[in-house]
Write a protein that binds this DNA or RNA. Structure first.
Lengths: 237, 237
DNA sequence: TGTACATCAGTGAACGCGCGTTCACTGATGTAC
DNA sequence: TGTACATCAGTGAACGCGCGTTCACTGATGTAC
Protein backbone atom coordinates (compact mmCIF):
# COMPACT_ATOMS: atom_id res chain seq x y z
CA UNK A 1 0.00 0.00 0.00
CA UNK A 2 1.84 3.10 -1.17
CA UNK A 3 0.81 6.19 0.75
CA UNK A 4 -0.58 9.03 -1.37
CA UNK A 5 2.38 11.21 -2.14
CA UNK A 6 1.61 14.88 -1.89
CA UNK A 7 3.91 17.58 -3.19
CA UNK A 8 5.03 18.14 0.38
CA UNK A 9 6.09 14.54 0.72
CA UNK A 10 8.08 14.66 -2.45
CA UNK A 11 9.86 17.85 -1.47
CA UNK A 12 10.58 16.40 1.94
CA UNK A 13 12.29 13.40 0.38
CA UNK A 14 14.32 15.60 -1.88
CA UNK A 15 15.49 17.88 0.88
CA UNK A 16 16.36 14.88 3.02
CA UNK A 17 18.54 13.59 0.23
CA UNK A 18 20.15 16.99 -0.22
CA UNK A 19 21.01 17.14 3.45
CA UNK A 20 22.54 13.69 3.33
CA UNK A 21 24.49 14.61 0.22
CA UNK A 22 25.94 17.76 1.73
CA UNK A 23 26.63 16.01 5.03
CA UNK A 24 28.35 13.23 3.13
CA UNK A 25 30.54 15.74 1.33
CA UNK A 26 31.52 17.32 4.64
CA UNK A 27 32.24 13.90 6.05
CA UNK A 28 34.44 13.10 3.08
CA UNK A 29 36.42 16.27 3.55
CA UNK A 30 36.75 16.63 7.28
CA UNK A 31 35.78 13.35 8.87
CA UNK A 32 33.15 12.54 11.44
CA UNK A 33 34.53 14.87 14.09
CA UNK A 34 34.16 17.85 11.76
CA UNK A 35 30.55 17.21 10.94
CA UNK A 36 28.50 20.17 12.13
CA UNK A 37 24.84 20.95 11.71
CA UNK A 38 25.56 24.63 11.33
CA UNK A 39 27.99 24.21 8.46
CA UNK A 40 25.65 21.83 6.69
CA UNK A 41 22.80 24.28 7.08
CA UNK A 42 25.02 27.07 5.77
CA UNK A 43 25.83 25.08 2.65
CA UNK A 44 22.16 24.42 2.06
CA UNK A 45 21.14 28.05 2.61
CA UNK A 46 19.02 27.06 5.54
CA UNK A 47 18.99 28.03 9.15
CA UNK A 48 20.49 25.40 11.50
CA UNK A 49 17.31 24.74 13.40
CA UNK A 50 15.54 23.81 10.19
CA UNK A 51 17.53 20.58 10.06
CA UNK A 52 15.64 19.39 13.10
CA UNK A 53 12.61 18.89 10.87
CA UNK A 54 14.59 16.14 9.15
CA UNK A 55 16.97 14.68 11.71
CA UNK A 56 16.64 14.60 15.44
CA UNK A 57 19.98 16.27 16.10
CA UNK A 58 23.56 15.68 15.09
CA UNK A 59 23.83 12.11 16.28
CA UNK A 60 20.82 11.01 14.29
CA UNK A 61 22.32 12.52 11.16
CA UNK A 62 25.64 10.81 11.79
CA UNK A 63 23.86 7.52 12.29
CA UNK A 64 22.10 7.93 8.98
CA UNK A 65 25.40 8.63 7.27
CA UNK A 66 27.08 5.62 8.80
CA UNK A 67 24.24 3.39 7.80
CA UNK A 68 24.39 4.82 4.31
CA UNK A 69 28.11 4.08 4.10
CA UNK A 70 27.61 0.48 5.16
CA UNK A 71 24.77 0.06 2.71
CA UNK A 72 26.71 1.56 -0.16
CA UNK A 73 29.68 -0.72 0.44
CA UNK A 74 27.47 -3.79 0.77
CA UNK A 75 25.59 -2.88 -2.42
CA UNK A 76 28.76 -2.54 -4.42
CA UNK A 77 30.15 -5.77 -3.03
CA UNK A 78 27.00 -7.66 -3.88
CA UNK A 79 26.93 -6.20 -7.37
CA UNK A 80 30.52 -7.30 -7.86
CA UNK A 81 29.76 -10.79 -6.57
CA UNK A 82 26.76 -11.03 -8.87
CA UNK A 83 28.82 -9.92 -11.82
CA UNK A 84 31.53 -12.45 -11.04
CA UNK A 85 29.02 -15.25 -10.61
CA UNK A 86 27.54 -14.57 -14.02
CA UNK A 87 30.87 -14.29 -15.83
CA UNK A 88 30.93 -17.34 -18.08
CA UNK A 89 34.45 -18.72 -18.13
CA UNK A 90 35.78 -17.29 -14.87
CA UNK A 91 37.63 -19.57 -12.49
CA UNK A 92 36.80 -19.64 -8.80
CA UNK A 93 40.03 -17.80 -8.14
CA UNK A 94 39.06 -15.03 -10.55
CA UNK A 95 35.61 -14.75 -8.99
CA UNK A 96 37.19 -14.48 -5.59
CA UNK A 97 39.07 -11.34 -6.67
CA UNK A 98 35.95 -9.41 -7.60
CA UNK A 99 34.68 -8.37 -4.18
CA UNK A 100 38.06 -7.48 -2.64
CA UNK A 101 38.92 -5.30 -5.63
CA UNK A 102 35.60 -3.55 -5.35
CA UNK A 103 36.07 -2.98 -1.65
CA UNK A 104 39.47 -1.44 -2.27
CA UNK A 105 38.14 0.84 -4.98
CA UNK A 106 35.28 1.90 -2.77
CA UNK A 107 37.67 2.69 0.05
CA UNK A 108 39.98 4.67 -2.21
CA UNK A 109 37.04 6.72 -3.43
CA UNK A 110 35.62 7.30 0.04
CA UNK A 111 38.43 7.04 2.56
CA UNK A 112 36.60 8.75 5.40
CA UNK A 113 33.65 6.42 5.04
CA UNK A 114 36.00 3.46 5.16
CA UNK A 115 37.42 4.95 8.32
CA UNK A 116 33.93 5.30 9.73
CA UNK A 117 33.33 1.59 9.25
CA UNK A 118 36.71 0.03 9.91
CA UNK A 119 38.70 2.79 11.62
CA UNK A 120 38.74 3.89 15.22
CA UNK A 121 35.22 4.27 16.55
CA UNK A 122 33.97 7.83 17.07
CA UNK A 123 34.36 8.36 20.82
CA UNK A 124 31.18 8.78 22.77
CA UNK A 125 29.11 7.53 19.90
CA UNK A 126 27.55 4.14 19.26
CA UNK A 127 26.93 2.94 15.73
CA UNK A 128 23.33 2.01 14.99
CA UNK A 129 22.41 -1.65 15.36
CA UNK A 130 21.07 -1.88 11.83
CA UNK A 131 24.59 -1.91 10.47
CA UNK A 132 24.65 -5.63 11.15
CA UNK A 133 22.55 -6.27 8.09
CA UNK A 134 24.78 -4.61 5.45
CA UNK A 135 27.85 -5.87 7.30
CA UNK A 136 26.61 -9.43 6.86
CA UNK A 137 25.71 -8.79 3.25
CA UNK A 138 29.25 -7.61 2.62
CA UNK A 139 30.85 -10.64 4.25
CA UNK A 140 28.46 -12.97 2.45
CA UNK A 141 29.29 -11.41 -0.91
CA UNK A 142 32.99 -11.85 -0.25
CA UNK A 143 32.71 -15.45 0.76
CA UNK A 144 30.21 -16.53 -1.85
CA UNK A 145 32.73 -18.05 -4.28
CA UNK A 146 34.20 -20.10 -1.46
CA UNK A 147 30.87 -21.51 -0.37
CA UNK A 148 29.94 -22.28 -3.94
CA UNK A 149 33.20 -24.05 -4.69
CA UNK A 150 32.85 -26.00 -1.48
CA UNK A 151 29.28 -27.06 -2.23
CA UNK A 152 30.12 -28.22 -5.74
CA UNK A 153 33.26 -30.04 -4.63
CA UNK A 154 35.63 -27.78 -6.53
CA UNK A 155 37.52 -26.78 -3.42
CA UNK A 156 41.01 -28.13 -2.86
CA UNK A 157 41.15 -29.27 0.76
CA UNK A 158 44.52 -29.34 2.52
CA UNK A 159 45.56 -32.71 3.80
CA UNK A 160 46.22 -31.13 7.20
CA UNK A 161 42.57 -30.03 7.30
CA UNK A 162 41.26 -33.52 6.69
CA UNK A 163 42.23 -34.68 10.16
CA UNK A 164 40.41 -33.86 13.37
CA UNK A 165 38.80 -30.45 13.21
CA UNK A 166 39.49 -28.24 16.20
CA UNK A 167 36.33 -28.27 18.29
CA UNK A 168 37.18 -25.13 20.26
CA UNK A 169 37.80 -23.10 17.12
CA UNK A 170 34.68 -24.48 15.54
CA UNK A 171 32.72 -23.23 18.53
CA UNK A 172 34.46 -19.87 18.64
CA UNK A 173 33.38 -19.23 15.06
CA UNK A 174 29.83 -20.54 15.33
CA UNK A 175 28.11 -17.31 14.26
CA UNK A 176 30.32 -17.05 11.20
CA UNK A 177 29.77 -20.68 10.31
CA UNK A 178 25.99 -20.35 10.46
CA UNK A 179 25.73 -17.04 8.67
CA UNK A 180 28.33 -17.53 5.97
CA UNK A 181 29.70 -21.00 5.36
CA UNK A 182 27.35 -23.66 6.75
CA UNK A 183 28.87 -26.52 4.74
CA UNK A 184 32.59 -25.77 4.51
CA UNK A 185 35.28 -27.62 6.48
CA UNK A 186 36.52 -26.01 9.68
CA UNK A 187 39.89 -25.24 8.14
CA UNK A 188 38.22 -23.37 5.31
CA UNK A 189 36.16 -21.39 7.79
CA UNK A 190 39.26 -20.41 9.70
CA UNK A 191 41.11 -19.42 6.57
CA UNK A 192 38.16 -17.38 5.39
CA UNK A 193 38.10 -15.43 8.64
CA UNK A 194 41.83 -14.96 8.46
CA UNK A 195 41.47 -13.75 4.88
CA UNK A 196 38.88 -11.25 6.08
CA UNK A 197 41.42 -9.88 8.55
CA UNK A 198 44.09 -9.65 5.87
CA UNK A 199 41.72 -7.89 3.54
CA UNK A 200 40.58 -5.30 6.06
CA UNK A 201 44.17 -4.86 7.16
CA UNK A 202 45.63 -4.39 3.72
CA UNK A 203 43.00 -1.87 2.68
CA UNK A 204 43.13 0.03 5.97
CA UNK A 205 46.90 0.25 5.90
CA UNK A 206 46.79 1.69 2.39
CA UNK A 207 43.90 4.07 3.07
CA UNK A 208 45.29 5.31 6.37
CA UNK A 209 48.61 6.15 4.77
CA UNK A 210 50.91 3.39 5.98
CA UNK A 211 52.27 2.44 2.58
CA UNK A 212 54.26 5.64 2.19
CA UNK A 213 57.84 4.57 1.48
CA UNK A 214 56.91 0.99 2.18
CA UNK A 215 54.79 -0.55 -0.54
CA UNK A 216 55.60 1.26 -3.74
CA UNK A 217 52.87 -0.33 -5.84
CA UNK A 218 49.84 -0.86 -3.62
CA UNK A 219 47.62 -2.18 -6.38
CA UNK A 220 50.11 -4.84 -7.45
CA UNK A 221 50.71 -5.90 -3.88
CA UNK A 222 46.98 -6.02 -3.23
CA UNK A 223 46.37 -8.20 -6.27
CA UNK A 224 49.14 -10.62 -5.38
CA UNK A 225 48.10 -10.89 -1.78
CA UNK A 226 44.44 -11.47 -2.48
CA UNK A 227 45.24 -14.03 -5.14
CA UNK A 228 47.38 -15.87 -2.62
CA UNK A 229 44.52 -15.77 -0.12
CA UNK A 230 42.33 -17.42 -2.74
CA UNK A 231 44.98 -20.08 -3.29
CA UNK A 232 45.18 -20.68 0.44
CA UNK A 233 41.43 -21.13 0.56
CA UNK A 234 41.71 -23.87 -2.05
CA UNK A 235 40.14 -21.99 -4.94
CA UNK A 236 41.35 -23.04 -8.38
CA UNK A 237 42.94 -20.33 -10.47
CA UNK B 1 78.36 16.40 28.22
CA UNK B 2 75.44 16.46 30.61
CA UNK B 3 74.18 19.96 31.25
CA UNK B 4 74.23 21.08 34.87
CA UNK B 5 70.79 20.24 36.20
CA UNK B 6 69.39 22.96 38.35
CA UNK B 7 66.30 22.48 40.51
CA UNK B 8 64.34 24.33 37.87
CA UNK B 9 65.39 21.85 35.22
CA UNK B 10 64.36 18.92 37.32
CA UNK B 11 60.97 20.39 38.11
CA UNK B 12 60.49 21.18 34.46
CA UNK B 13 61.06 17.56 33.49
CA UNK B 14 58.67 16.37 36.14
CA UNK B 15 55.91 18.74 35.13
CA UNK B 16 56.40 17.80 31.50
CA UNK B 17 55.90 14.17 32.43
CA UNK B 18 52.84 15.01 34.48
CA UNK B 19 51.31 16.85 31.56
CA UNK B 20 51.97 13.93 29.25
CA UNK B 21 50.51 11.51 31.79
CA UNK B 22 47.30 13.48 32.24
CA UNK B 23 47.02 14.07 28.51
CA UNK B 24 47.54 10.36 27.95
CA UNK B 25 44.74 9.55 30.37
CA UNK B 26 42.41 11.94 28.57
CA UNK B 27 43.41 10.40 25.28
CA UNK B 28 42.66 6.94 26.61
CA UNK B 29 39.22 7.99 27.75
CA UNK B 30 37.98 10.27 25.04
CA UNK B 31 40.21 9.84 22.05
CA UNK B 32 42.28 12.35 20.14
CA UNK B 33 39.34 14.55 19.21
CA UNK B 34 38.49 15.10 22.86
CA UNK B 35 41.96 16.21 23.85
CA UNK B 36 41.77 19.78 25.13
CA UNK B 37 44.40 21.98 26.70
CA UNK B 38 41.88 23.50 29.04
CA UNK B 39 40.73 20.22 30.53
CA UNK B 40 44.31 19.02 30.94
CA UNK B 41 45.21 22.25 32.71
CA UNK B 42 42.14 21.87 34.91
CA UNK B 43 43.22 18.40 35.98
CA UNK B 44 46.67 19.66 36.79
CA UNK B 45 45.41 22.65 38.75
CA UNK B 46 47.06 24.99 36.31
CA UNK B 47 45.80 27.74 34.14
CA UNK B 48 45.54 26.81 30.43
CA UNK B 49 48.08 29.31 29.22
CA UNK B 50 50.70 27.80 31.51
CA UNK B 51 50.87 24.75 29.25
CA UNK B 52 52.42 26.92 26.58
CA UNK B 53 55.60 26.94 28.64
CA UNK B 54 55.85 23.21 27.90
CA UNK B 55 54.20 22.60 24.56
CA UNK B 56 53.74 24.96 21.70
CA UNK B 57 49.98 24.53 21.50
CA UNK B 58 47.62 21.62 21.18
CA UNK B 59 49.09 20.10 18.06
CA UNK B 60 52.55 19.89 19.55
CA UNK B 61 51.16 18.07 22.56
CA UNK B 62 49.25 15.66 20.36
CA UNK B 63 52.38 14.99 18.35
CA UNK B 64 54.29 14.19 21.51
CA UNK B 65 51.57 11.77 22.58
CA UNK B 66 51.52 10.03 19.23
CA UNK B 67 55.26 9.66 19.25
CA UNK B 68 55.09 8.30 22.78
CA UNK B 69 52.51 5.73 21.72
CA UNK B 70 54.68 4.55 18.82
CA UNK B 71 57.71 4.36 21.04
CA UNK B 72 55.91 2.44 23.76
CA UNK B 73 54.60 -0.13 21.31
CA UNK B 74 58.01 -0.51 19.67
CA UNK B 75 59.70 -0.89 23.05
CA UNK B 76 57.35 -3.65 24.13
CA UNK B 77 57.69 -5.43 20.84
CA UNK B 78 61.46 -5.33 21.00
CA UNK B 79 61.45 -6.56 24.56
CA UNK B 80 59.23 -9.45 23.53
CA UNK B 81 61.48 -10.28 20.58
CA UNK B 82 64.53 -10.18 22.82
CA UNK B 83 62.85 -12.45 25.34
CA UNK B 84 61.86 -14.93 22.65
CA UNK B 85 65.34 -14.94 21.14
CA UNK B 86 66.86 -15.81 24.49
CA UNK B 87 64.39 -18.55 25.34
CA UNK B 88 66.46 -21.72 25.20
CA UNK B 89 64.33 -24.47 23.66
CA UNK B 90 61.83 -22.37 21.76
CA UNK B 91 61.07 -23.27 18.16
CA UNK B 92 61.03 -20.61 15.46
CA UNK B 93 57.25 -20.89 15.41
CA UNK B 94 57.04 -20.22 19.15
CA UNK B 95 59.36 -17.24 18.83
CA UNK B 96 57.23 -15.87 16.04
CA UNK B 97 54.22 -15.73 18.38
CA UNK B 98 55.90 -13.47 20.93
CA UNK B 99 55.66 -10.11 19.19
CA UNK B 100 52.10 -10.49 17.85
CA UNK B 101 50.84 -11.50 21.30
CA UNK B 102 52.53 -8.52 22.83
CA UNK B 103 51.07 -6.20 20.23
CA UNK B 104 47.60 -7.52 20.93
CA UNK B 105 48.01 -7.12 24.67
CA UNK B 106 49.30 -3.60 24.22
CA UNK B 107 46.34 -2.74 22.02
CA UNK B 108 43.84 -4.21 24.47
CA UNK B 109 45.37 -2.14 27.26
CA UNK B 110 45.50 1.07 25.22
CA UNK B 111 42.83 0.91 22.56
CA UNK B 112 42.82 4.62 21.81
CA UNK B 113 46.54 4.64 21.29
CA UNK B 114 46.21 1.72 18.92
CA UNK B 115 43.59 3.72 17.08
CA UNK B 116 45.94 6.67 16.93
CA UNK B 117 48.55 4.57 15.18
CA UNK B 118 46.50 2.21 13.01
CA UNK B 119 43.04 3.76 12.96
CA UNK B 120 41.65 6.56 10.84
CA UNK B 121 44.02 9.51 10.77
CA UNK B 122 43.00 12.55 12.80
CA UNK B 123 41.62 14.93 10.15
CA UNK B 124 43.58 18.08 9.57
CA UNK B 125 46.52 16.74 11.44
CA UNK B 126 49.79 15.23 10.20
CA UNK B 127 51.66 12.75 12.32
CA UNK B 128 55.26 13.72 13.07
CA UNK B 129 57.91 12.30 10.77
CA UNK B 130 59.87 10.77 13.63
CA UNK B 131 57.29 8.00 13.92
CA UNK B 132 59.13 6.23 11.13
CA UNK B 133 61.83 5.14 13.54
CA UNK B 134 59.67 3.30 16.11
CA UNK B 135 57.48 2.01 13.29
CA UNK B 136 60.49 0.35 11.73
CA UNK B 137 61.64 -0.97 15.08
CA UNK B 138 58.25 -2.59 15.54
CA UNK B 139 58.25 -4.23 12.14
CA UNK B 140 61.83 -5.38 12.59
CA UNK B 141 61.03 -6.97 15.95
CA UNK B 142 58.10 -8.83 14.41
CA UNK B 143 60.08 -10.17 11.50
CA UNK B 144 63.25 -11.00 13.37
CA UNK B 145 62.54 -14.73 13.81
CA UNK B 146 61.85 -15.01 10.09
CA UNK B 147 65.10 -13.37 9.10
CA UNK B 148 67.02 -15.48 11.55
CA UNK B 149 65.48 -18.73 10.38
CA UNK B 150 66.15 -17.72 6.81
CA UNK B 151 69.77 -16.86 7.47
CA UNK B 152 70.47 -20.12 9.27
CA UNK B 153 68.65 -22.20 6.67
CA UNK B 154 65.91 -23.35 9.01
CA UNK B 155 63.17 -21.88 6.85
CA UNK B 156 60.97 -24.25 4.86
CA UNK B 157 60.67 -22.78 1.37
CA UNK B 158 57.61 -23.58 -0.71
CA UNK B 159 58.30 -25.33 -3.97
CA UNK B 160 56.18 -22.73 -5.75
CA UNK B 161 58.52 -20.03 -4.43
CA UNK B 162 61.61 -21.72 -5.78
CA UNK B 163 60.74 -20.83 -9.38
CA UNK B 164 61.11 -17.43 -10.97
CA UNK B 165 60.64 -14.66 -8.44
CA UNK B 166 58.26 -11.92 -9.51
CA UNK B 167 60.44 -8.97 -10.47
CA UNK B 168 57.63 -6.41 -10.25
CA UNK B 169 56.69 -7.46 -6.74
CA UNK B 170 60.30 -7.52 -5.73
CA UNK B 171 60.59 -3.94 -6.86
CA UNK B 172 57.33 -2.85 -5.25
CA UNK B 173 58.61 -4.06 -1.91
CA UNK B 174 62.15 -2.72 -2.19
CA UNK B 175 62.04 -0.57 0.96
CA UNK B 176 60.73 -3.47 3.02
CA UNK B 177 63.32 -5.80 1.62
CA UNK B 178 66.17 -3.48 2.48
CA UNK B 179 64.97 -2.50 5.93
CA UNK B 180 63.70 -5.84 7.16
CA UNK B 181 64.57 -8.97 5.23
CA UNK B 182 67.63 -8.39 3.05
CA UNK B 183 68.36 -12.08 2.54
CA UNK B 184 64.99 -13.82 2.40
CA UNK B 185 63.41 -15.16 -0.80
CA UNK B 186 60.85 -12.96 -2.55
CA UNK B 187 58.04 -15.30 -1.58
CA UNK B 188 58.97 -15.01 2.07
CA UNK B 189 59.06 -11.24 1.81
CA UNK B 190 55.60 -11.19 0.27
CA UNK B 191 54.21 -13.51 2.90
CA UNK B 192 55.74 -11.44 5.67
CA UNK B 193 54.06 -8.31 4.35
CA UNK B 194 50.80 -10.16 4.01
CA UNK B 195 51.18 -11.44 7.56
CA UNK B 196 51.68 -7.86 8.70
CA UNK B 197 48.36 -6.94 7.10
CA UNK B 198 46.63 -9.89 8.74
CA UNK B 199 48.07 -8.99 12.10
CA UNK B 200 47.06 -5.33 11.96
CA UNK B 201 43.67 -6.35 10.63
CA UNK B 202 42.94 -8.96 13.26
CA UNK B 203 43.93 -6.70 16.13
CA UNK B 204 42.12 -3.67 14.73
CA UNK B 205 38.95 -5.65 14.13
CA UNK B 206 38.97 -6.85 17.71
CA UNK B 207 39.89 -3.50 19.24
CA UNK B 208 37.40 -1.55 17.17
CA UNK B 209 34.57 -3.82 18.21
CA UNK B 210 33.95 -5.93 15.13
CA UNK B 211 34.07 -9.29 16.87
CA UNK B 212 30.78 -8.76 18.68
CA UNK B 213 28.61 -11.77 17.83
CA UNK B 214 31.18 -12.90 15.32
CA UNK B 215 34.30 -14.31 16.94
CA UNK B 216 33.30 -15.63 20.33
CA UNK B 217 36.84 -16.35 21.55
CA UNK B 218 39.13 -13.65 20.17
CA UNK B 219 42.23 -14.89 21.94
CA UNK B 220 41.87 -18.42 20.64
CA UNK B 221 41.22 -17.20 17.14
CA UNK B 222 44.18 -14.87 17.34
CA UNK B 223 46.50 -17.63 18.47
CA UNK B 224 45.37 -20.01 15.74
CA UNK B 225 45.61 -17.42 13.03
CA UNK B 226 49.05 -16.17 13.98
CA UNK B 227 50.34 -19.71 14.30
CA UNK B 228 49.07 -20.41 10.81
CA UNK B 229 50.83 -17.30 9.56
CA UNK B 230 54.05 -18.65 11.00
CA UNK B 231 53.46 -21.97 9.26
CA UNK B 232 52.84 -20.17 6.01
CA UNK B 233 56.12 -18.32 6.41
CA UNK B 234 57.91 -21.64 6.68
CA UNK B 235 58.78 -21.46 10.37
CA UNK B 236 59.09 -24.82 12.14
CA UNK B 237 56.74 -25.36 15.04
C1' DT C 1 -16.09 24.81 -5.89
C1' DG C 2 -15.30 27.30 -1.76
C1' DT C 3 -14.33 27.94 2.98
C1' DA C 4 -12.36 26.90 7.78
C1' DC C 5 -9.08 24.62 9.97
C1' DA C 6 -4.85 21.63 10.74
C1' DT C 7 -0.33 20.45 9.55
C1' DC C 8 4.28 21.41 9.07
C1' DA C 9 8.72 23.46 6.71
C1' DG C 10 11.51 26.99 7.63
C1' DT C 11 12.83 31.59 10.23
C1' DG C 12 15.36 34.31 13.50
C1' DA C 13 16.83 35.22 17.86
C1' DA C 14 18.71 33.60 21.84
C1' DC C 15 20.77 30.26 25.39
C1' DG C 16 25.06 28.53 27.34
C1' DC C 17 29.03 25.98 26.29
C1' DG C 18 34.10 24.89 25.90
C1' DC C 19 37.61 25.75 23.07
C1' DG C 20 42.81 27.60 21.60
C1' DT C 21 45.52 31.31 21.97
C1' DT C 22 47.49 36.23 23.28
C1' DC C 23 49.30 39.24 26.51
C1' DA C 24 50.90 42.02 30.26
C1' DC C 25 51.89 40.80 34.86
C1' DT C 26 54.12 38.78 39.32
C1' DG C 27 57.33 36.51 41.89
C1' DA C 28 60.48 32.85 42.54
C1' DT C 29 64.80 30.73 40.86
C1' DG C 30 69.30 31.05 38.82
C1' DT C 31 73.60 33.63 37.28
C1' DA C 32 77.48 37.01 37.00
C1' DC C 33 80.37 39.83 39.22
C1' DT D 1 79.41 36.22 50.76
C1' DG D 2 76.49 39.63 48.94
C1' DT D 3 74.25 42.28 45.51
C1' DA D 4 72.17 43.44 40.79
C1' DC D 5 70.23 41.61 37.07
C1' DA D 6 68.27 37.96 33.86
C1' DT D 7 65.51 34.08 33.20
C1' DC D 8 61.35 31.85 33.23
C1' DA D 9 57.12 29.22 35.40
C1' DG D 10 52.77 30.33 36.26
C1' DT D 11 48.63 33.85 36.72
C1' DG D 12 44.43 36.04 35.30
C1' DA D 13 41.85 38.38 32.18
C1' DA D 14 40.38 38.78 27.76
C1' DC D 15 39.80 37.86 22.56
C1' DG D 16 36.84 35.69 19.15
C1' DC D 17 35.23 31.42 17.60
C1' DG D 18 31.80 27.78 16.19
C1' DC D 19 29.04 24.68 18.19
C1' DG D 20 24.10 22.04 19.35
C1' DT D 21 19.79 22.97 20.75
C1' DT D 22 15.25 25.55 22.27
C1' DC D 23 11.46 28.24 21.22
C1' DA D 24 7.85 31.25 19.65
C1' DC D 25 6.75 32.75 15.15
C1' DT D 26 5.14 33.03 10.03
C1' DG D 27 3.27 31.53 6.02
C1' DA D 28 2.58 28.06 2.64
C1' DT D 29 0.56 23.46 1.76
C1' DG D 30 -2.87 19.98 2.58
C1' DT D 31 -7.51 18.27 4.34
C1' DA D 32 -12.42 17.97 5.70
C1' DC D 33 -16.75 19.37 4.97
Amino acid sequence: VSAPRTARDRVRDEVTKEILAVAGAHLAQEGAAGLSLRSIARDLGMVPSALYRYFNGRDALLSALILEAYTSLADQAEAAADGAAEAPGASDGARWMAVPSTMRQWALARPHEWGLIFGSPVPGYRAPEETVVPYTRLAAALVRPVGEASRTGRLRVESSDAGSPDAAMEEALTPVREALLPDAPTGTLERAMSAWCTLIGIISLEIFGHWRNTVLDPELFFGHTVTRLGDGLGLRR
